[in-house]
């Protein structure tokens, strides 16, 4: 049984690789956009301007209140209705994961900036730094250490949540697996493989996050 299982995986490898590539593409793109968006969100909310803060807060609460899967459906089924545009499911997934991920990374960035001593901001202002200089030269570099481990955890969650893309029809690794099962009925083997696939993607990240947190946690 084991040998035929491995044989099957070997034979299906090209297919599975294509599916895995889709999964990785969705995850990687979403992680990249979420990081950029999250830094922007965190900094903008720290500026303390009301006209920025209120819409950003609404954006945050919307992505907290509405589960990601619901957002996927809203975008996939709802966008054509409202705008007549229809986005391919791959990009729906990336868009939703990026926006959701940005809100999560954003809150981490905001918390990190908030936890810095207030005097750093004042000392920077006192020598005449502009806001971009203040954040770029003084605040963000210092916040980096406390931001990185939780942000890596968000990346892990983005990878896991990207699995939901199969439910709006993206042909990623789970879909490919299901196609193989339809032909061969080897459900235990394939789902076991998928279990291992995601575990091997996420575990190193979780472990890295823990190591960094321990190494960088000074008072």
């Amino acid at each position: 049984m084991a040998s035929s299982g491995l044989e099957l995986l070997w034979v299906s490898a090209p297919q599975l690789a294509r599916g895995a590539w889709q999964t990785l593409s969705i995850s990687a793109s979403s992680i990249a956009f979420a990081t950029l968006g999250g830094i922007a969100y965190g900094v903008l909310r720290q500026l303390g301007k009301r006209w920025l803060d209120v819409p950003l807060r609404i954006y945050l609460e919307l992505f907290r209140a509405i589960p990601v899967l619901v957002w996927l459906y809203l975008l996939f089924f709802g966008l054509p209705i409202f705008t007549g545009l229809s986005l391919p499911s791959f990009w729906c997934a990336v868009l939703v994961l990026s926006l959701w991920g940005a809100s999560e990374v954003g809150e981490v960035v905001r918390g990190g900036l908030q936890s810095l001593p207030r005097g750093q901001r004042e000392a920077g202002l006192a020598i005449g730094l502009s806001a971009p200089q203040l954040y770029g030269q003084v605040l963000l570099p210092q916040a980096l250490k406390r931001i990185t481990p939780p942000t890596i955890n968000v990346y892990t969650r983005i990878i896991k949540t990207s699995s939901l893309a199969v439910l709006i029809g993206v042909v990623e690794v789970i879909k490919v697996g299901q196609q193989i099962i339809e032909r061969t009925y080897e459900s235990l083997l394939i789902y076991g493989f998928l279990f291992l696939f995601f575990f091997l993607l996420c575990y190193p990240l979780s472990a890295a996050s823990r190591v960094l947190e321990r190494r960088w946690s000074h008072a």
Partner: peptide, 21 residues
């Protein structure tokens, strides 16, 4: 524009607040 003024009025704080990095 306080940036301009702050170059002409310097301030030193109780907790020094040097940039640790």
């Amino acid at each position: 524009d306080w940036r301009d003024v702050r170059q002409r009025i310097g301030m030193v704080f109780q907790s020094y607040h040097l940039f640790p990095h």
